[in-house]
Design a protein around this nucleic acid. Structure first.
Lengths: 132, 132
DNA sequence: AGCATATATGACTTATTAGTCAACTACAGC
DNA sequence: GCTGTAGTTGACTAATAAGTCATATATGCT
């Protein structure tokens, strides 16, 4: 699985676009959905067009009104992209992960998670400090 | 450690609980995460405890600060969700290995090498024992 | 053209999140 | 006990989402 040289990069469509796409795919009007939500059509339009930053519960209610799971709105399309640009030796090494036993694989990914989280946190902090 | 555990019961977990679970699993304090978010720790506490209904962008920022995909926070009530996060966002994370500091990168690969060596040794031994 | 429907947006009010500071509890280590 | 850290909660202000109504714009239909 890892040995296939492709990297899935998640492209997040903003939530409004995703809502609009879902709604139109179901041939529903803003008015209909807004009514089901007990929300004003005007506000619904603003959400679809990203003119406002809806609350999480609003997104949940919209998902419900559209009859989809929340993850379907949050989940974006995967774009597959060649990874020629990356250091292939890294991927070769990572391909070895597939040979590990489940327990060790899990431990390995825990460590990776931790390192990546740490790095992200550090980067964010550095950024925050710079903007002071 | 927990890779075989699967949840058989559909248990709805609100987003706050999910955030808290994710944060504590990564041994991060509210303060650390809140700082990375440029959010007040008090507000972060309120979100974790469901005392407030955060905006969608706030949830996105929290996911980012925690180093997880947004779907991992939202998708908590899935029945057969792998506990370890090496399913969807793994390629992204693996790409980030590249960006780790040299010290951590080499430590990371040392662990990988050790695990793979150990497995190979074990396989060889098992094979040797069988042929006795 | 005239009319209806769907959508977008402006203006205003109300409700609620977010920022900030402070106080309090709980708990661990010295 | 004292001290520091982590977390919760209250009180207040500022920022912004949501509710409401009006109106503009676009499109399709007869």
């Amino acid at each position: 699985m890892i040995s296939e040289i492709r990297c899935a990069i998640r492209h997040y469509m903003n939530i409004g676009e995703q809502i609009k796409k879902t709604r139109t795919a179901k041939n529903l009007s803003q008015k209909e959905v807004a009514l089901a939500l007990e929300m004003d059509q005007a506000q619904f339009s603003r959400i679809e067009n990203g003119k406002t930053d809806p609350s999480f519960s609003t997104i949940e209610k919209i998902a419900q009104a559209l009859g989809v799971e929340l993850v379907e709105l949050v989940n974006a399309d995967d774009i597959f992209k060649e990874v020629n640009s990356y250091d292939k030796s890294i991927f070769e090494k990572l391909a070895l992960v597939d040979q590990l036993e489940e327990k060790e694989k899990s431990a390995f990914f825990s460590i990776l998670d931790a390192l990546v989280s740490k790095k992200r946190l550090k980067d964010t902090l550095a950024h925050a400090l710079n903007s002071i």
